[in-house]
Amino acid sequence: MSKERKIKVLCCKPGLDGHDRGVKVLARALRDAGMEVIYTGIHQTPDDIVNTVIQEDPDAVMLSMLSGSHNAICPIIMDKLKEHGIDDVLVAVGGIIPDEDKTFLESHGLKGFYGPGTDLKTIVDFVKNNLKR
């Protein structure tokens, strides 16, 4: 048991998209930055994700979305988290998120929006600096 608290991160792929190269690379990068990482696998429904968040109690949830379904799916996840009183978890979405959708997603409490070609260090630092607990 350690004195320093470990950051625990849940990496998810919601929706039907199976392109998991990015999220797997990210999972490893977060691990290499000393975090404890759970990757849910692909095809996660909002309920799957919220149930995992409830049980695993991560500090951050990273949603990887490349198929354009972010505006439909992300707000549902945020609403369901709220229903369970979970408001101290950083929820970020990345992948292919057009600029014009950011305001909408931000209004639902999502952050991040990192796209292809982002330095992994940038995302690692983002997680470290934006934790809500």
Binding site: L16, T45, S67, G68, S69, H70, A72
Partner: peptide
């Protein structure tokens, strides 16, 4: 569309947000 690729109908809840996107 992804929902066609997975062989589910547009009416299936898992198709949410994916129809015609890709």
């Amino acid at each position: 569309s992804l929902h066609t690729i997975y062989g589910i109908d547009a009416t299936d809840p898992r198709a949410l947000g994916e129809i015609g996107k890709e």
